[in-house]
């Protein structure tokens, strides 16, 4: 398709293109985590908050969207500075 020749960024942070995600899916990625491992999509500053849904939509072209779970969540699930949580609760 002609429009593919123009870059479309799926992961805005790591600047991962639609073609790179498509390649990862062709290479066998079936989950958001699989795409992440292959492309680094979702590993940038925002931690996948923006691209997660877009990648799920792309995976949904070949799989039932009900089975596409978000990649595992671990704390921190909000943008916080590491020095803030490393300091601990002193109250």
């Amino acid at each position: 398709m002609a429009e593919n020749r123009e870059t479309i960024y799926i992961c805005r942070c790591e600047e991962v293109t639609r073609e790179e995600i498509e390649q990862a899916i062709r290479d066998g990625a079936t989950t958001i985590a699989g795409v992440k491992k292959r492309t680094h999509a979702g590993m940038g500053l925002c931690q996948g908050r923006t691209c997660r849904k877009l990648i799920a939509n792309m995976l949904a072209c070949s799989r039932d969207p009900a089975n596409i779970l978000p990649s595992t969540f671990r704390p921190p699930v909000r943008t916080v500075r590491i020095d803030e949580i490393a300091q601990g609760d002193e109250e």
Partner: peptide, 29 residues
Amino acid sequence: YVHGGREIFLKAEKIVIAAGAAENPLAFP
């Protein structure tokens, strides 16, 4: 949670999560 540059823990008997929603992005050139 984090407040004022430090981490704080709050123990509750019940929790209500009302975190809302985020806008969906759209990717195009």
